[in-house]
């Protein structure tokens, strides 16, 4: 984060090698380093849970203001326990590092990849509709499967499960509740046998023309209308 008051300009008084300016710059870069540390997962180098919550709050607000949906992919790397048990915890960590780099390379620059905890990750896709987010999740699933990791000299195929959900501007939902909802689809993917993508049921767009077959027939056909399904209100 660049502080405009402390940009790398010469001393305002024109002094060369100004010790105060040098100190300000040192503090500034220290500040940047600490900020980065507080938002980064030390193992994988992707964003951490703290950043996930802050970024999700921001994107939800953006959705509310612009009407563009925010999508969220919850990811869980499959069978990490098995890797840990077979090859040791260092191998498990290596697998997490490897796969997070694979995902990072296969996401857009605007997407925010975070480690949620353990072997669970989350990707925020700003301004992205459900169908595009599902496509992205499917791409990540295939890439994971096709990018084996080398652990103790052996090539191991990794797989992951994905839950996809979208936050719409019409919804009243906290970031925590949104994550919880997306997590349900991840759980569904796990229960269904892992290595797959599950998502929220795509709702019909709110503004689609919904003229039913009956209505259309009545509009075109003239004359006779079909019997009304609902009870008519009593005439006062």
């Amino acid at each position: 984060m660049q502080n405009p008051l402390c940009s790398e300009t010469a001393c305002p008084l024109g002094a060369e090698d100004c010790p105060l300016c040098a100190e300000v710059q040192r503090l500034q870069s220290e500040c940047e380093r600490l900020h980065e540390l507080s938002h980064t997962d030390p193992l994988t180098g992707v964003f951490n849970r703290r950043h996930l919550m802050a970024a999700l709050d921001q994107e939800r607000e953006r959705t509310r203001r612009t009407g563009l949906p925010t999508s969220l992919i919850m990811i869980d790397l499959d069978h990490v326990k098995r890797i840990n048990d077979t090859y040791g915890h260092q191998a498990g960590d290596d697998a997490l590092k490897w796969v997070s780099q694979v995902w990072r390379k296969n996401l857009r620059r605007i997407d925010i990849l975070c480690r949620y905890g353990g072997e669970e990750f989350a990707v925020i896709l700003p301004g992205t509709r459900l169908n595009a987010a599902v496509r992205a999740a499917k791409r990540l699933r295939t890439t994971t499967e096709q990018s084996p990791v080398t652990l103790m000299g052996r090539k191991i195929t990794l797989t992951a499960s994905f839950g996809v959900d979208t936050f719409l501007d019409t919804e009243e939902l906290t970031s925590r509740a949104f994550i919880k909802r997306a997590d349900r689809y991840l759980l569904e993917a796990k229960i269904k046998g892992r290595n797959q993508v599950c998502c929220r049921k795509p709702e019909k767009a709110q503004q689609t023309i919904e003229v039913t077959v009956d209505e259309r027939a009545a509009l075109y056909g003239g004359g006779i209308l079909p019997k009304k399904k609902t009870a008519r209100k009593n005439k006062g």
Partner: peptide, 17 residues
């Protein structure tokens, strides 16, 4: 009839939503 159907669709969305 198409103008009628499109007008009906707009009425439906405006009344329902």
């Amino acid at each position: 009839p198409t103008a009628m159907t499109d007008a009906y669709a707009l009425i439906k969305v405006l009344s329902r939503d």
